[in-house]
Design a protein around this nucleic acid. Structure first.
Length: 573
DNA sequence: GCCGTTTTCGGCCCGACTGTTTTCAGTCG
């Protein structure tokens, strides 16, 4: 069983932690951390890339040595260097270093002077009052460590963007209501519209920072104040997430917004540009010596570098800075370009509303068409439709379309892909549909090659159009099933099929990296909500966010087209 | 450990807050 990318990344992270505790060259440590991020973000398994004979040392931040170590991990499941370091410095120290407030220096002191190797031993030492006796430690540090150890027990998960919005927006409105406050922006991965958010970063412009910080820590949902200064504060909210507030003067707003939007990798990339020109870029502006030469707006900062303004969704140091320099940034798809939704359920299966109600809700959103895609019979829990019931639904839709104006209901089905790769409904009924959306709902744990084969075989059916939620992952709940999406995309391209970007905040499947992969292959994507209610249609905007993170333009998205143009693309020879 | 229009050595992003200091180290983002 080859190691997953996440496991390779974890090994590098652990090695970085241990080397740091040992006091190794900090740049060497950083190299391991960078490599961990690179591997983690690969859209394909490193193991598969190696098997295909690709040269991993071509990846950014991966040289000959690290490529060799990745190969070693893939082939043996072990990293000799990590085992070697582990003999000198217990691997569990990395768990201790993960506790907020404890960095390499303190971990080293705790280990060497108290022989503490595990979080459990650390808790014991803290309770016994032994930590405060160490130089550089005091009673407060000891208490903080105990609190953090408690907190770590409630396993931390990243918050879905959708959930984060519900925390962030009211807090932003609360801050905005303070007199003397200018802009309030939720920056960070939230502004980059990442599918999940770790901490929330809120940026506020105000000339008198202390007041807004006071208001911030007085917010009713604040459970604990971690730090509080005149321009900066961190709190933990009752609902879980950590929130960082930064107050900056108006003249620094653009630079600060850029800084706190990140990503860190993008910022480092841009700061290197500054260094090359003898400038300095920080959250207060772009400086030439002591003179601020830009910073009021983000655009001003990018302008100064001769770069186009980079949409936040692209700021991952994945080539966007180079594209901005060449004037080659994509014109990202927007919600207003969407002309219809190609995946929606009704009460006939597991949805909540009638076909007519769903159609009217779609019309209200300004759409020209809505595909009704109730489940097929294999999905018994969802009361899936067999051929007879679907035939009656087709007649019903024909009748409805005759009486409706301004919206066209497309006859469709979410057809189960059976475990042998056949479709759950016969061609005799599928051929009466405007399009077929096909997906997997059981047998998730087939071996990777069989799962891939299953889907590709299903695409051989001439009525197969769109593969829905291609990886099957549910954020924070279920991992993607083992499937080679690159092979699936190639197969789709060859057969005239397409993939869905499921817009549901728990799915967002395809993910950003696979959207980008599809675009690079020339494979178009349908952004669909999989709505089970009229409200569900509103989730489209999360799909748009994800698509933008994947560099998709309107032309890359199927449902930015009129139905007549779309029908031509769907028609298979 | 990586990287290169400063290219095989010598760099590698920068500032605020906390708790401990008695002028600053450690940590974090």
């Amino acid at each position: 069983m080859p190691l997953h990318n996440a496991e390779i990344a974890a090994a590098f992270d652990r090695l970085a932690d241990l080397l740091e505790i040992e006091g190794a060259n900090p740049f060497r440590v950083r190299a391991y951390r960078n490599a961990a991020r690179t591997v983690e973000d690969l859209p394909r398994a490193a193991a598969a890339m190696i098997a295909a004979g690709e040269d991993l040392s071509k990846l950014p931040g991966i040289g000959k040595d690290l490529a060799g170590k990745i190969a070693e991990l893939v082939e043996t499941g072990h990293l000799e260097l990590l085992d070697e370091v582990g003999k000198r410095t217990p691997k569990t120290l990395a768990d201790i270093a993960a506790i907020p407030g404890l960095g390499p220096k303190r971990v080293k002191a705790i280990y060497e002077e108290l022989k503490v190797e595990t979080p459990e031993q650390l808790a014991e030492a803290a309770r016994a009052g032994k930590l405060r006796e160490l130089t550089g430690f005091g009673a407060k540090t000891e208490a903080k460590i105990l609190t953090e150890l408690e907190r770590a027990r409630a396993i931390e998960r990243r918050t879905r963007l959708f959930d984060a919005e519900q925390v962030a927006e009211p807090l932003a409105a609360y801050l905005k209501a303070q007199k003397g406050v200018g802009d309030v922006t939720v920056a960070g991965s939230y502004r980059r519209r990442k599918e999940t958010v770790g901490d929330l970063d809120i940026l506020v412009t105000a000339e008198r920072g202390a007041r807004i910080v006071d208001r911030f820590v007085a917010y009713e949902e604040v459970e604990r104040v971690v730090s509080k200064g005149t321009t900066r504060s961190t709190v933990i909210l009752r609902s879980g997430p950590q929130v960082d507030l930064r107050v900056v003067p108006r003249a620094s707003y653009g630079a600060a917004l850029h800084y706190f939007t990140g990503s860190k990798a993008h910022n480092i990339g841009l700061r290197k540009w500054a260094v090359k020109r003898g400038w300095k870029l920080n959250e207060y502006g772009l400086f030439e010596g002591d003179k601020r030469i830009a910073g009021r707006t983000e655009k001003e900062v990018y302008d100064k570098f001769g770069l186009a303004w980079v949409p936040p969704e692209l700021r991952e140091d994945e080539g966007e800075i180079e594209a901005a320099a060449k004037g080659a940034l994509p014109e990202l798809v927007t919600l207003s370009r969407i002309k219809g939704d190609l995946h929606a359920h009704t009460a006939a299966s597991d949805g909540k509303f009638s076909i007519r109600e769903m159609a009217l809700a779609a019309k209200e959103r300004g759409y020209d068409y809505l595909a009704i895609t109730d489940h097929s019979k294999r999905a018994t829990v969802a009361r899936g439709l067999d051929a007879d019931r679907l035939a009656r639904q087709i007649d019903e839709i024909d009748a409805l379309n005759d009486g409706l104006s301004g919206i066209r209901i497309l006859k469709s089905s979410e057809v189960d892909i059976l475990d042998d790769g056949t479709l759950d409904l016969p061609d005799s009924i599928l051929k009466r549909l405007d399009l077929a959306v096909c997906s997997i709902h059981y047998a998730f744990d087939l071996p990777l090659d069989r799962q891939t084969e299953r889907v590709i075989r299903a695409m051989d059916d001439r009525y197969f159009n769109i593969l829905a939620h291609p990886s099957g992952r549910l954020i924070n709940e279920r991992r993607a099933y083992g499937i080679d999406l690159e092979a699936v995309m190639r197969a789709a391209l060859e057969r005239g099929c397409y993939l869905e970007l499921n817009a549901h905040p728990s799915r967002l499947d395809l993910d950003d990296a696979h959207c980008k992969m599809a675009k690079e292959m020339g494979l178009k994507v349908a952004i669909s909500t999989d709505a089970h209610s009229t409200n569900g249609l509103a989730m489209m905007r999360f799909g748009i966010d994800q698509a933008r993170r994947g560099w998709l333009e309107a032309d890359d998205v199927l449902n930015t087209r009129s139905w007549s143009a779309l029908a031509k693309l769907l028609a298979r020879g």
